[in-house]
């Protein structure tokens, strides 16, 4: 029987990913709780927040699509 080998660090990422998806889904469905959209919207309230978010977005894109070995 073939088993997929997941490293200990990989297990932590799976737990973190599940927590993010779980909380994101739960908070998106419950009125009164800030969901993932609210998280992005919070940054877009002001010029400073929007520019900071854009810088992070641009840096992440450059790293993922142009640098990652």
């Amino acid at each position: 029987m073939a088993t997929a080998a997941v490293s200990p660090g990989g297990v932590v990422w799976i737990v973190l990913g599940a927590a993010l998806v779980g909380w994101g889904t739960f908070s998106a469905m419950r009125p009164g709780l800030p969901g993932p959209i609210a998280l992005i919207r919070w940054f877009t309230q002001s010029w400073l927040g929007r520019v900071l978010a854009l810088c992070a977005w641009g840096g992440a894109g450059w790293h993922v699509f142009c640098q990652r070995p």
Binding site: I40, R41, F43, T44, Q45, R50, A53, L54, W57, G58, A60, G61, V64, F65
Partner: peptide
């Protein structure tokens, strides 16, 4: 996904 996120940050709300 990166394009959608960028569009939301640049133009949204």
């Amino acid at each position: 996904g990166w394009l959608l996120l960028g569009g939301a940050i640049a133009l949204g709300w």
